[in-house]
Every structure is written in structure tokens, then in C-alpha cells.
Simulated scan of single mutants.
Amino acid sequence: MNPIKRIDPRRPFVIASSGLRRITLGQEHVAGAATDDIPRLGAHGEREKPRRTVEQAGRVLLVAAHSDRGALDEHARQAVAAAAIVADARTEVVLVVFGELTDDAAELGADKVIELPALGRPVFAPDRAVAALKACIAAFSPAHVLMPDNATGDGDLGRRYAALAGASIATQVVEIDASHVGVYVDAQRQFASRAWPDVVLLAADAVSSKLPFVGAGERASLPSESAAECVVDTRDQLYRDLGTVQLDAADVALEEADFIVSAGNGVTDIAAFEALAGAFGAAIGASRVAVDNGYFTRDKQVGATGKTVSASVYIAFGISGAVQHLQGIKDCRHVIAVNLDASAPIAKRADLTLVGDAQATIAALTQAVTAARGAQPAPGTASSRATLNEGVAA
């Protein structure tokens, strides 16, 4: 018979917000030790991460990436983490964001952050982006530049810069350490490594974005002389950005939709639900029950047996949240649930839960959205495209 394992009461502890003592793992607590020696907990009961130590930084690793509505995607976060992992105590990690950044830069592992909001998505200005990257590199003189090797602008920008500057580059890098980077070659049948090049384009999932430490997270700006180099004479360009044109949400596949409203068994007025989707300009999804009842076609079903979606906003009306449905929305950024049952499984996944009748909420939202839009031109119309192009030209 195995004896019951008991916790040594002399182990280190912290005082929680409730005033109770919580024993933690680690070295034994010494009576009378200074308060600074006692581990602290974060806002949610997690131990706060230590700050990465940088002593007289004489070397810089620069990371460049585009943001999406103020946030970096997972691939870009991995690129920042890769730089923070290989950085030693004399190396500073500088993050250049094409667009705005609302994420916690310190949590990402960056020591300094420079935002370039005028070059964020969906602006297509590759010449200006390359000029801005060159200006940042001239200002900080980094040892290496790391970028995510994606198809949404960063991979193209890294290749353009390397070609124009005559810099060495490694693409689709799957392994890094302090001395070399590694890639797959020969149709991924062989593995090759080389010394660090000037530009490193990191493949997805090469490293984990979760770090055991944080960076300084200081906001910085380019010197005026470097910022002036970002300006490119658009009159000499062979192309012009005409902006983006929004498609009808009904024509967008659920897998590619950025905004989805989904109906479940709690939605009884389908016409009102579709009117709300039209007012929002959102794609329509449905639970399996709603599809089985014949209210929606099978291509609208969200879940393990339907479509897996990755929308920025997903609003679920009258959906309890079966395991299959939750699996289908696991990659959504923000989930909002409208349900009469506050203890429904969907409430655990949702970032915001509104406890109320789905039909009443749909009617109120439709009225509010219609009133807020007022006389604004509908998305995708000629007038809205003209307004957008005027703004881009300005």
C-alpha cells in the first residue's frame, strides 16, 4: 500500500488576493526572507514571468511583421519569440510592426517596438514598405532580420529587401539556434543547415510563441532622418493601390469569412436572422440542429462534421455549444454567445456572453446597426469604392 504523499508546509508560498497562503513549487522558503524573494502571482493566479536581462546591449535582432487590426498572428508571434530565444544578455530584440499594435509587446518578447500605422493592411505599397524596412535597419544596424515566411506580405517584403540590398537570406527556416539555421531541401527529403544569414524567413511552427520570460516592451520611434527615408515618390510607381472592395458576405466561403453570425435551435425567425447578417455584412453559419431542421443548407454547418472557421468575430445565437460545434470555432478570435442558459457550454468558450432571448437580441441589434449606419453607402457599391479610392489617393 502506497503512503499518501504530503506537501511539505515549509515549501515556498505566496499570499493570494483572498489572503490565504498558497504553496508553490521551487526552493524551500527561508523564514524571514525578503519580500522580493517570494514568488508573485499574476492577476489570474499565475506566477509572473521574469523579465529577460539585457546588459549594455551592443547587438540587435530586428523582427518585422504586419499586424491585423492591431494584433500579430501566431506566425508573427513565433518570429518574435525566435529572436527572443536566441538573444543573449547583450542582444536587444526590436520589433517593427507594419500597422498598429495593441498586443502586449513585452509578453511577445520584444524589448523595443516601432509602429508604422500608415503601412498596415490592407494598404498595398511594397516600395514604401521596403523603404521603411531599410530605414529601420539603417537606424538600428541589426545583426540579423527575422520575419515570418507567409503569403500575406511579410515573406514578400523580406525577399524584396534581400534582393534590393544584396543581403543573404534563408527562407522557410524550420530550426534555429545561436550558431546556425536549418531548412529542408530536396522536396523535404533532406535537411541542411548554415550560418545565420542577414535575413531569416521563419516557417510556421518552427518555434513556440510561449516564452518563460518577457521583454522590456518599450515604445520607440524612428529618428527624423530615418523616417524621411520611408517616403517614396508615388509618381514613379508603375502601379496604384485602388483599395479593397468588399464582396457580398453570402459569396464568401465560411472558411474564409472574417465575420460570422451563426444560428442554432434558439433562432425561430430565420428571415430576421438573415436581415441581421445583411445589416452586419456578415456571413451566415448554423449549428447541426438548425441544418437538420431544414432552416439552412449543409454548406452553412459549423462544427467538426461541417466547416471549421477562423473568423475574427463569431456571434452564436441560440447555440448551446455541443463539443462538435466548439471544435469548429476553436480558431475564432472573438466569440460572442447569445443564449438563455448562462451555463451552456458555449458560454465557457465565449469571450462575451449575453444572457437573453435570441430573437429579441436579433431585433434590437438589427435596429441599432441600421440606425448607426444611417446614410452610409452599402459595402461594395460604386459610391463606397469611390470614397475608399479617394482616401487611398489622399
Rank of each mutant, 00 (worst) to 15 (best):
I315W: 07
R160Y: 15
E255N: 10
A192R: 09
V130F: 10
G380E: 08
A125H: 05
A386T: 12
D37L: 14
W196L: 15
V93F: 01
K348N: 15
D269M: 06
A83S: 13
L101R: 04
A394M: 07
G155I: 12
A206I: 02
Y239D: 05
Q56V: 07
I260F: 01
T53Q: 11
A275Y: 02
M147I: 15
P12G: 12
A304Y: 05
L157D: 07
D127R: 15
V252H: 02
A195S: 15
S383N: 10
A81C: 01
D241I: 13
L95R: 08
S224E: 08
R333N: 05
P379C: 13
A311K: 03
P148K: 11
A31I: 08
L222S: 01
V302A: 00
V63E: 02
S384Y: 08
K134D: 15
R219W: 06
A249K: 03
Q367V: 11
G328A: 00
Q188I: 14
Q301M: 11
D8G: 04
R69L: 08
A76M: 03
A143P: 09
G266Y: 02
V94I: 01
D236P: 04
A106P: 00
K307I: 14
G278M: 05
F296I: 00
N265M: 08
S179W: 13
R51H: 08
A282T: 00
L326G: 12
M147W: 02
A195G: 11
R159I: 12
L202T: 11
D269K: 09
I85F: 08
